[in-house]
């Protein structure tokens, strides 16, 4: 009885989730609006999607964004995984608290500060701004998120598994690639996905650190949004939301299937044999 959902709990969940999803649902619906007036329904149409694919500037921006996201997520995953290993495994070393501070600070630091400071660094280094500077900027803050995700996976890791490998004659470096990495791999993948989405999503840091020829999709969307709500933007947003939704649902289905399989295996193991 006590564990059953009460009307109050159900109501708060329904209201809460409606609040979270209604705006996105409305945005998706109005991307199929015939009328140019975004808030007046003028019949169903996919014409805005068609126009989208004629808009070369938008497509260019999307391509730049994907390249930046892919590269920065990959580098951030390597650096972030290393950082997580350092945090969990390296014990004490000089400057450890500075190191963990630098990992955690970017998670809560306002983006305007991160963006401004990186831009001023690039200016001081006399570095021409563009694709590479955005990539470096995204790598820097994304690696901190990766570190936190991988770290949580490493904390639950039975260190004796690594010791067992060494005990059986496997040198430390080889142990990392043969034992540790495969076991923490789900965390590394989750870190990469998070880094990728963060980069895809970022407006503020990219605006500061970019230069000519490296306009990202969020910057493009932002500049158009400032001029007003248009069905094309709704269409772009719908595509992005759709991709992310498919990705996240697919990922969770795979995890769920693995879990079900695992539970079945475990039942099998404890059955008669």
């Amino acid at each position: 009885m006590r564990n059953g959902p009460t009307w109050f709990n159900v109501t708060s969940l329904v209201l809460g989730f409606s609040f979270l999803y209604l705006p996105i649902v409305l945005l998706v619906i109005f991307s199929f609006n015939e009328s140019r007036l975004v808030t007046v329904w003028g019949g169903f149409s996919t014409k805005w999607y068609g126009e989208l694919f004629q808009n070369q500037q938008l497509l260019d921006a999307a391509w730049v964004t994907l390249k930046v996201a892919f590269l920065s997520a990959s580098i951030a995953t390597v650096l972030g995984t290393m950082a997580a290993l350092v945090l969990v495994r390296s014990g004490r070393f000089v400057g450890r608290s500075l190191f963990s501070g630098m990992i955690f600070a970017p998670l809560v630091m306002p983006e305007v500060i991160l963006g401004l400071s990186l831009l001023l660094l690039f200016v001081a280094m006399d570095q021409a701004r563009g694709f590479w500077t955005v990539m470096i900027a995204h790598t820097t803050f994304a690696m901190c998120y990766v570190a936190v995700v991988v770290q949580s996976r490493l904390v639950g890791f039975d260190k004796s598994v690594e010791e067992a490998a060494e005990d059986l004659g496997c040198p430390p470096a080889k142990t990392f690639f043969q034992i540790t990495l495969p076991i923490i791999f789900p965390g590394v993948i989750a870190g990469w996905m998070l880094a990728f989405t963060l980069s895809l999503d970022d407006l503020v840091i990219a605006s500061f650190t970019t230069g000519p020829g490296a306009t990202t999709l969020p910057m493009k969307i932002y500049s158009q949004v400032r001029l007003g709500v248009t069905p094309e933007i709704n269409a772009v947003c719908t595509i992005l939301v759709g991709l992310v939704t498919i990705g996240v649902i697919a990922a969770s289905l795979v995890t769920k299937r693995q879990q079900v399989q695992r539970e079945r295996d475990e039942r099998l193991a404890f059955g008669p044999h």
């Binding site: 705006p23 945005l27 999503d201 969307i221 932002y222 939301v241 939704t245 769920k256």
Partner: peptide, 25 residues
């Protein structure tokens, strides 16, 4: 698990898009 995923899902969608969605509303 489903409810948890529903809470996390918007986090994966663009911040900019979510803010933009409110303009029309």
């Amino acid at each position: 698990p489903t409810l948890l995923m529903l809470i996390i899902l918007p986090f994966w969608t663009s911040f900019l898009i979510r803010v933009y969605a409110w303009i029309g509303i």
